[in-house]
Design a protein around this nucleic acid. Structure first.
Length: 109
DNA sequence: CGATTGACACCAA
DNA sequence: ATTGGTGCCAATC
C-alpha cells in the first residue's frame, strides 16, 4: 500500500553507515523526481514507523541538515552523523559528494 | 471540501 | 553567488 512512503523508509534504511542521501534522489528512485517534498513528509512520519528510520542520513540536496530540528534534539542529527564518521560543519555535511549514497546507483533496483 | 504548509528541488533574475 | 518564485504530492487545519 503506502508504496511511496514504505519505499522511502526502506531506501532510507538501506543507507549504509557513514553514508547519506538527499530527498531528490530518493524521490527519483521511487519514480517521482518532483516529489522530493513527499520524501520530507515521509520522514516527518518516520518517527512513528516500527523500524526506526535513520532519517539523519537523509539531507537536502545541499547536504544541509535541514531536518535536524525534527529530531529529539536539534544536535542529535549532527551527533549521529559525526558518530558514523561523517564530518559535519555548520549543519552541513562535509565531503557530501564523497559520503553521498545514490540509491539509483547503489541499489540499482 | 478549500486553503495552507512541509525534513525539497529547480529555474530565472 | 544570492535571492525569489514556482512545481510537485500528501497531510493537516
Amino acid at each position: 500500500m503506502n508504496d511511496f512512503y514504505d519505499m522511502v523508509y526502506e531506501v532510507t534504511r538501506q543507507i549504509p553507515r557513514g553514508r547519506v542521501t538527499n530527498y531528490g534522489s530518493i524521490a527519483k528512485y521511487l519514480g517521482s523526481p518532483q516529489s522530493s517534498r513527499l520524501v520530507g513528509w515521509a520522514m516527518n512520519q518516520s518517527h512513528s514507523k516500527k523500524p526506526p528510520v535513520p532519517a539523519h542520513r537523509v539531507v537536502n540536496r545541499n547536504g544541509e541538515l535541514s531536518g535536524r530540528m525534527h529530531f529529539a534534539s536539534p544536535s542529535l542529527m549532527e551527533e549521529l552523523l559525526v558518530s558514523e564518521g561523517i564530518r559535519v560543519e555548520k549543519n552541513t555535511i562535509v565531503n557530501f559528494d564523497k559520503v553521498f549514497w545514490d540509491p539509483e546507483r547503489e541499489l540499482k533496483l
